[in-house]
Design a protein around this nucleic acid. Structure first.
Length: 490
RNA sequence: GGCGCCAUGGUCAAGAGGUCAAGACGUCGCCCUCUCAAGGCGAAAUCAUGGGUUCAAUUCCCAUUGGCGCUGCCA
């Protein structure tokens, strides 16, 4: 019980960092933080064809952005490094030599073509396609013959027959497998690089990982890994296989479901607090009814026995809602930071603004905070402040100006507004009230004509908020232009 | 094909033999309000099917069906 909890996140740097990977990392991180354990970040780069340094950078940046830090691993180091598999080849070799010497593993000279042939033959007979052990007991002569042909052997693990293999899984309970269903599998490829199922065992063991929390797709691989633990005489960790994230059509989340890379969300202006909150809720449920929480609260609440077994469909709408909730909780300054790149992209600012202009921009941006779910929606919400060119949105809007009282109301309002010592939300609001009262009108009769002449729209933010942002001069200019367009004289 | 995992509203889900089967997103309605959002309130909507076990099954067991994963010298 005194043993320290050690978890790891071990991604392959073979492409954009996936939303599913982010959730695996999050669950590991939450568990480590909850139990005061350590989180290890290991890079599984043994797929030389697909692994890239850029991808590794992308993963690390994404984790940092999400706030998922690691105690040991690439970049930060630690007592059990190196933490990149391609830098650990000599370590694997030592264990491979041991297995070979003990006869627990053997060289296999079969070519990919021969293997494929065997596979097809088995399939044709309706049998399970697995390696039948052709090279299990090669004679010295055969080996020499193959070597003379220049064949490069792979190394396979000798899988014992008729063995029950039990995976102790924290989320699924004990899962039983039969070793007869597993052929002697490759542990070292012919180029000398270990395979995933082999390297992962040596690394997890040497790095003293106590809890292997990963996606469910690895559950069926776990018996193979258990076999390696046994062959090597290593102590086994406990496992926890969390369910997969599915797209709306209930198949494994992939590119065709839209955005699957974490970067895509980051670029759209989702924020870490929202994404983490949403991801935590995918496959895990807090004990209470509170669904919006901070990372600190998630750590307090997190528990592996509240992790669901069934796969979860990724609900974009709920992500939007959750992210919106977190956006509403941001400080004005943080919201401004979030908005800047989108405002620049829309051409609404350059980033060199200062003084009154900068203050004005900040006020404009602030109006969007409770209207958007993610950053990319900000420009459209403030677009009207950046152009005085607009049309009536439809006939209905234009018709508002036909109302009998409209010209009089607008004239009165403009005069009152111009007489104001200071144009701010309160004074503007008071002015509207005053005009409404003086003429015994309904609110709509006062606000709507102004709204339409000011923006061309019947909908939008509160007028008392908009008018100070436009300023008196632009307000008047826009209104007069609209009236001219509608052929109305004040 | 074989092996494995999974199965509560459209979606995320709570539930642990006896519940009017929580809550959230979304949808719809109402309130607030000049309007739209935001916010508040409310409604509709679920235990895949068939067998058992039991006085009693959404809950336990089995089968079926469906979904997904693994079955790679990918991870």
């Amino acid at each position: 019980m005194s043993q320290e909890i050690r978890v790891r996140f071990a991604p392959s740097p073979t492409g954009p960092f996936h939303i599913g990977g982010a959730r695996s990392a999050l669950f590991n991180w939450l568990l480590a933080r909850k139990l005061g354990g350590k989180m290890v970040l290991r890079i599984e780069d043994t797929d030389r064809k697909r692994s890239t340094p850029e991808s590794e950078e992308n993963i690390k940046n994404a984790l940092k952005w999400l706030g998922l830090d690691w105690d040991e691993g690439v970049d930060v180091g630690g007592p059990y490094g190196p933490y990149r598999q391609m830098e650990r080849l000599d370590i694997y070799k030592k264990y491979t030599d041991q297995l070979l010497a003990e006869g627990k593993a053997y060289y296999c000279y079969c070519t990919p073509e021969e293997l494929e042939e065997e596979r097809q033959a088995l399939l044709k007979d309706g049998k399970m396609p697995r390696y039948m052990g052709k090279c299990r007991s090669l004679t010295r002569e055969q080996i020499e013959k193959y070597e003379a042909e220049g064949r490069k052997p792979s190394i396979r693990l000798r899988v014992p027959p008729n063995e029950k293999i039990v995976v102790h899984d924290l989320v699924r309970g004990d899962v039983e497998f039969d070793s007869n269903g597993i052929g002697d599998f490759v542990i070292v490829k012919s180029d000398g690089i270990p395979t995933y199922n082999y390297a992962v065992v040596i690394d997890d063991s040497l790095m003293h990982v106590t809890h292997v929390i990963r996606a469910e797709e690895h559950l069926s691989n776990t018996p193979r890994q258990l076999l390696v633990y046994d062959a090597l005489g290593f102590e086994k960790p406990v496992f926890g296989h969390i369910s997969l994230i599915l797209g709306t059509d209930h198949t494994k989340m992939s590119k065709r479901h839209g955005a699957t890379s974490l970067d895509a969300y980051r670029q759209k202006g989702y924020i870490p607090a929202g994404l983490n909150n949403f991801l935590a809720l995918l496959g895990w449920a807090p004990s209470g009814e509170k669904e919006i929480f901070t990372m600190e609260e998630a750590i307090q609440e997190f528990s592996l026995d509240r992790v669901a077994k069934n796969p979860a469909v990724f609900d974009f709408k709920k992500l939007d809602w959750i992210n919106g909730q977190h956006i509403r909780k941001m400080t004005a300054e943080d919201f401004w930071e979030l908005a800047v790149p989108f405002m620049k992209e829309a051409g609404y600012m350059t980033g060199t603004e200062e003084g009154g202009q900068l203050e004005w921009l900040k006020k404009v941006v602030a109006t969007a905070q409770n209207q958007v779910d993610y950053g990319a929606q900000i420009p459209e919400k403030v677009a009207m402040y950046f152009s005085d060119e607009f049309e009536f949105e439809n006939e209905e809007a234009a018709a508002v100006l036909k109302e009998e009282t409209a010209p009089m109301v607008m004239k009165a309002l403009l005069e009152e507004l111009k007489a104001l010592p200071e144009v701010n939300r309160d004074t503007v609001k008071a002015t509207f009230k005053k005009v409404q009262k003086a003429n015994k009108l309904k609110g709509q009769q006062v606000y709507m004509p102004i709204r339409v002449t000011l923006t061309g729209n019947q909908h939008g933010p509160e007028l008392a908020e908009m008018i100070p942002l436009f300023g008196l001069a632009r307000t008047e200019k826009r209104i007069l232009a609209s009236l001219a367009k509608a052929g109305i004289q004040l």
